[in-house]
Design a protein around this nucleic acid. Structure first.
Lengths: 326, 326
DNA sequence: AGGCGTGATTTGAACGTTCAAAGTCTCGTA
DNA sequence: TACGAGACTTTGAACGTTCAAATCACGCCT
């Protein structure tokens, strides 16, 4: 920077201004500085800037547990878009809320991180409170389940997704549409169940036609088997996840059922496995989520300390991808 | 840090030494400094340290294109392990070698990155040369295909994987074992084909029983159909990827073939979709790869400038996961 | 003529660390 | 008694930026 200043016949500070506050610099001078910068290929040093300004242009994101296709795609979108705005994404990996908070602390204090993107919000989430207390900038991909929002969030309207799935199956003539979900209390799971309930209630479907299991292929099979073996069996399955849906699919395939014709299935997340098995599924618009997160983060970072009202939440609609199982 | 120094009745530098070079400090003093650090909850500021030492304790990794389960898991393992050693992983996303090199440049010059982890090495890779020229520390997950190694690398022995797959199918009694691969020249693809050739040659299998297509489900179906419709059809398929294998699986399922009994299939990568469809597949030991990468990186970072011979490469054996299709 | 405001630029200090060199203390030895 | 060696500690400067305040040049008003 000193070299640039010398060559442009100005002081360090003018170079700094030319870069960070060009309106303070006379046009003629600006051009001279710009030329010097180009000639010398000068680029400001981030660590020095961070040291002085307490801003790192870094965003932290948690490296999710493996096998989560949605979060993987989200992270990709986030990285790409952050980069376009001059930010970089820094990863951390933790197993639970407590560990994550410990990471926050280190990242915030030691690395001057500018913002955090949280995924997988859940009931009783301890992370948001911690961050809010510290006055850290953050947004969540996921609603503040069971709490009032004291922070910006972006989420996908799961209920709308399962509702659309249910309506699609209704149109195909199904009247025994079951829901295969997660145990109550999970926020996301309850929301997706609500969508099915809503669509069902509108036309008087049997609201008891449902099962709740932890997320696994085997549990999907199990649920499917139970619902098929009823006196008045289910003819279609709306599932809270692709994992359970693929379990259902497995059971149906094993029984030799004609998928799409006799029985319908819809999953959630549109995972690669759904594409392979031609399973219909509700797709989350992860690119849009990432975009919205960054926009919101931009506002939050700017408005921190001055403004105390959280930004307007964003709820995005998912898309039903219709394949062979509906 | 000044506060710690005051409280411990020592100078800044002694605090610094207590942290970075404890052997230089008298035990008694060390204890006093340590106590002060604990009392005040002091933690050194990374940006300041980076500014002075030119070291960031940051490792760059590329955020792979979506849908690559192996790289996703690798990234997770890398993050976890790096973190345990005091490093953090910084992401970048680029579409091609040129873009990636541009990112390297920015990360190296502006952010003082300590090291790079490259994935997806390929024939004519421009990235390694660029990094080597700059004297940057890096390792690759993937061999330097078609070039002599001027850098440390870790890879999985693909040929050993397909060889094991082929031998497994031989044991099941198959004698018409086909290979569904990628077009020649891709390094990884050729290597995996070699494993099949090797195992086949040992017992005199037909070496022409193979197809080469770009990686997609449809191409897998296509290849499968062609190989089944031969006068002397294939009875088993060793595939270069799960994508192609799942294409094969789709075609076989559509034809109502009894998988595992009449016909065998083995994929590569052990993706989630393989688990769902009960497809046998060759699994890469990504955790071990990440571990080896970091160990190697540690050596490279330490030895930079002094030592010029690259570290010993690491080639790890994959594991054949046997499910219903063998 | 002198003071004043405004826009452009410079100066000195500071951010929090570590490097390089110099300083102090203790002890064994000539 | 002094001297050098070794162990430990301190001092001043530096890393590359930006902040806050000072300075400068210039035209305008009274």
């Amino acid at each position: 920077m000193a070299t640039v200043a010398d060559r442009a016949q100005v002081s360090r500070q003018t170079v700094s201004n030319a870069i960070n506050a060009p309106h303070l610099v006379r046009a003629e001078t600006l051009a001279r500085v710009q030329a010097a910068i180009d000639d010398l290929g000068y680029r400001p040093h981030r660590a020095a800037r961070t040291l002085r300004t307490q801003r790192s242009y870094l965003i932290a994101a948690r490296m999710h547990k493996v096998g989560s296709d949605v979060l993987d795609r989200f992270l990709h979108a986030l990285t790409t878009r952050a980069q376009a705005q001059g930010y970089r994404v820094m990863l951390f990996a933790e197993d639970d809320d407590a560990g994550e908070v410990a990471s926050f602390d280190e990242l915030l204090t030691d690395h001057d991180l500018d913002a955090f993107v949280l995924t997988g919000t859940h009931v009783g989430d301890q992370r948001t409170e911690w961050l809010a207390e510290r006055g850290a900038a953050f947004v969540t991909f996921g609603r503040p389940w069971g709490a009032t929002a004291h922070h910006g969030w972006v989420d996908v309207d799961g209920a709308a997704g399962t509702e659309a799935a249910t309506e699609c199956l209704l149109q195909r003539g199904h009247r025994r549409i079951a829901f295969v979900g997660w145990p109550a209390g999970s926020g996301v799971g309850d929301d997706r169940r609500d969508g099915w309930s809503r669509a069902g209630a509108a036309v008087g479907l049997d609201p008891s036609l449902q099962r709740a299991y932890e997320d696994s292929l085997d549990n999907g099979r199990q649920a499917c088997a139970e619902l098929l073996d009823l006196d008045d069996p289910a003819t279609a399955f709306v599932c809270v996840s692709d994992t359970l849906a693929l379990g259902v699919w497995t059971e149906l395939t094993a029984r030799g059922v004609r998928l799409g014709d006799d029985v319908g299935v819809v999953g959630f997340d549109d995972s690669p496995a759904a594409k392979v098995t031609r399973l219909s599924s509700v797709a989350q618009p992860v690119d849009d989520v990432a975009e919205a997160c960054l926009r919101m983060l931009h506002d939050v970072i700017g408005a921190r300390e001055s403004d105390d009202s959280p930004p307007e939440p964003v709820l995005l609609p998912p898309t039903l991808v219709t394949r062979d199982t509906t």
